[in-house]
Design a protein around this nucleic acid. Structure first.
Length: 697
DNA sequence: GAGCACTGC
């Protein structure tokens, strides 16, 4: 490969008059010097945000909402809460909160700030995430938390009265909880004007947030403060012509960089596991052609399906005389930061989940990224030194991209969010001030489902059960089963099933020969009745597994707890230790809710029929009928992970946990049922003769 | 007979 066949804007090639200067100016700032060379205070003062300190405090003092524009590394997340603390905003028992979309961010930032403040974590500075509250009710002044946790707190403290200032960090990511929080906070500000908000955002979204908060309020309500930082420039290169196969092109570009360029690791963005593996294979084929004196090239994959150990390998520095190339999904765009990357290769694609409210179907499709996403990916090349980003698309294609990714709230099932808003007393959803309105059909679909599930009455208000379910951190259909377990006397088992369906990727199936072995391990766990019981099998308190054969996921749970919750046991049985440990946490959390709601923890004592009937109370809308061609009515395909993948259910009928469209329309986690059981639930919605369910119409 | 991007409570 003689040349990379790229042109670089501003140097040569067509259209070199690059007017998007921002693209080359990722405002990435070197990390602060360590306290060994400088005092802590001096290090803090060197951060770019420091010279804006007075301006920021003035803005918070005089405006209800401050939109803070500043890139990663400006120090906003660690410093602003401290400035506010030092300025007295946490006096008289008040707290300063800072929300993050991800758990790791909340914990790691809290750690750093506790060290800077000179306190033990959990004392003056703490964090709160699901299953972990490292904070002190009385003493904590600065609290980092996930946005989901703060939203949940509004259910018990609707005015968030403990907080004087709330900073919503990474608001431009527009996670569903960020959007819900912003809507609720705007409302709270009207009732409690002393509360101050700081909304931290990327440049592109700042005016939209400003308009949102000033709409219906005085123009003084909100203001924008921008922190410009020192930047390591990232040079952008585009393809001159589009390519038919970006995976192959990615491999070629990586190889070209390796042969020609100066030192520095390479990060490649592709859409999924399949593409990553193909790209790595292509590169592996080229390795033998490396000249003897050339640097070695270390090939690494990064995606969420890997074990923790495998993920950690990408952080190990490359050995002397070698270069790392990390081929990754979108996980490396915001969730995972790898230092030392100098070259980014961006395919321009991402897999995104969307929801179609008319058939309640979600799908996972490979789609072009947004310009904001492209900027973020490019920025990953310039965290510690100037870098280069190779975009595997033309500049014209870049210009045609959407400016930002549609917020999650516009492409997701709203059943749970709407139940929670209702629980906050927001009954008129049309009057709720959404930052971005969700599609009307999504709202209607969710309301309809909630009415039929008995969570909302004819008057549009929550029922008694609805109030309880709103508090419970599970999907509505699962909550319904938890409540029904009282009648079917199977609370113990339903609780496990609820926990196990809440986690993904219980089984780790590697590529190649190891994958085939893992597959055999998985079959040891199969329960004839289907996946839900398979999920359960392992934990059955009785002497023998009562479900005819062992199962995949369930065996998983019961056996996992029986064999001492060990990671080596998981490894031997192709299970994810991470996922299983999480299931244990979720189960104990849900158990507390069941106790609070007075739901007994009976065991069904091996009566699988009772258990399956209980499952129908939650899943009656998710019904499918087996057809002779091996598909289910409405042409649903069984996910290959299901134990019913190769087996016809005797009754011909199943219920399923979820349905998703990838290459085919697939249903996951199934259990065989008798069709008559359906008649007790929502018979209005189900036509016995056609076998069509609401979900598949 | 074949496969799921990433979060969060």
């Amino acid at each position: 490969m003689a040349s990379l066949q790229f042109w670089k804007p501003g140097t040569a090639g067509p259209g070199s008059n690059l007017d998007r200067a921002t693209e080359t100016e990722e405002n990435i700032v070197p990390s602060a010097p360590t306290s060994s060379s400088l005092s802590l205070q001096a290090a803090r003062e060197r951060l770019p945000i420091f010279k804006h300190r007075q301006k920021l405090l003035y803005a918070v003092e005089n405006h209800g909402v401050v939109i803070l524009v500043g890139q990663t590394g400006s120090g906003k997340t660690t410093q602003l809460p401290q400035y506010l603390y030092e300025a007295g905003w946490a006096a008289e028992g008040n707290r300063i909160a800072c929300t993050q979309p991800r758990r790791v961010a909340a914990t790691s930032v809290a750690n750093r700030v506790a060290a800077e403040v000179g306190t033990i974590l959990g004392d003056e500075v703490g964090y709160t995430i699901r299953f972990e509250d490292v904070s002190d009710k009385e003493r904590t002044r600065i609290l980092y938390m996930t946005d989901g946790m703060l939203f949940r707190e509004t259910l018990v403290d609707p005015l968030l009265s403990k907080y004087s200032v709330i900073m919503i960090d990474e608001a431009h990511e527009r996670s569903i909880y960020t959007d819900l929080l912003l809507g609720v906070l705007k409302k709270i500000r009207r009732k409690r004007p002393s509360l101050r908000l700081v909304v931290s955002s990327a440049t592109l979204d700042a005016t939209a947030f400003l308009e949102y908060f000033t709409a219906g309020n005085s123009p003084d309500e909100a203001t924008i403060v921008s922190l410009e930082g020192r930047a390591y420039p990232v040079e952008i290169a585009y393809l001159q012509e589009p390519v038919p196969d970006y995976v192959q092109k990615a491999a070629e570009v990586v190889w070209g960089i390796h042969m020609q360029q100066t030192p520095g690791d390479i990060l490649v963005f592709l859409s999924g596991r399949d593409e990553i593996e193909r790209c790595l294979e292509l590169l592996a084929e080229l390795l033998p052609t490396l000249p003897r004196n050339a640097k070695r090239l270390v090939l690494l994959a990064l995606h969420a399906g890997l074990t923790t150990e495998e993920q950690l390998r990408v952080f190990e520095p490359a050995e002397k005389g070698s270069r790392k190339v990390i081929v990754s999904t979108n996980i490396a765009e915001a969730s995972v930061t790898i230092e030392g990357i100098k070259f980014v290769v961006d395919s321009g694609f991402v897999k995104i989940r969307t929801y179609n409210p008319t058939n309640a179907m979600s799908s996972l499709t490979t789609t072009p990224i947004s310009q904001a996403s492209a900027t973020q990916r490019a920025g990953r090349a310039g965290r510690t030194a100037p870098g280069v980003c190779y975009r595997l698309y033309t500049q014209r294609a870049y210009e045609a991209l959407q400016p930002t990714t549609p917020p999650e709230i516009t492409r997701t099932d709203l059943t749970t969010p709407i139940l929670q808003l209702k629980s906050l007393g927001i009954d008129d959803l049309m009057k709720f001030e959404w930052v971005s309105s969700p599609p009307a059909e999504s709202v209607l679909r969710a309301l309809e489902g909630l009415v039929h599930a008995g969570m909302i009455g004819e008057d549009g208000r929550l029922t008694v059960v609805g109030e309880k379910v709103a508090e419970c951190p599970v999907e509505v259909n699962i909550a319904r089963m938890l409540f029904a377990s009282k009648d079917y006397k199977c609370g113990e088992e339903i609780l496990t099933i609820a926990a196990m369906t809440a986690i993904q990727d219980v089984f780790v199936i590697p590529e190649g020969a190891a994958g085939a072995l893992a597959e055999l391990e998985r079959r040891k766990f199969t329960a004839e009745e289907g996946d839900h019981l398979t999920l359960l099998n392992g934990t059955v308190p009785s002497h023998q597994p009562f479900y005819t054969s062992l199962t995949t996921q369930c065996l998983a749970y019961n056996a996992f707890t029986r064999y001492g919750r060990s990671s080596s046991w998981c490894k031997a049985h192709a299970l994810s230790f991470r996922a299983m440990s999480r299931a244990v946490s979720i189960r104990s959390q849900l158990k507390k809710y069941m106790q609070r709601f007075g739901l007994p923890l009976d065991s069904c004592e091996g009566d699988a029929k009772r258990l399956r009937k209980c499952l129908v109370t939650g899943y009656w809308r998710n019904v499918a009928r087996w057809m002779a061609d091996g598909t289910y009515r409405a042409v649903l395909h069984v996910h290959p992970h299901s134990v019913l993948f190769t087996r016809k259910p005797r009754s011909g009928w199943v219920i399923f946990h979820e349905m998703e469209e990838t290459k085919k329309t697939q249903i996951r986690i199934l259990t065989e049922i008798e069709p008559d059981w359906l008649l007790e639930h929502g018979h209005k919605y189900y036509d016995k003769h056609s076998g069509a369910s609401v979900a598949s119409q």
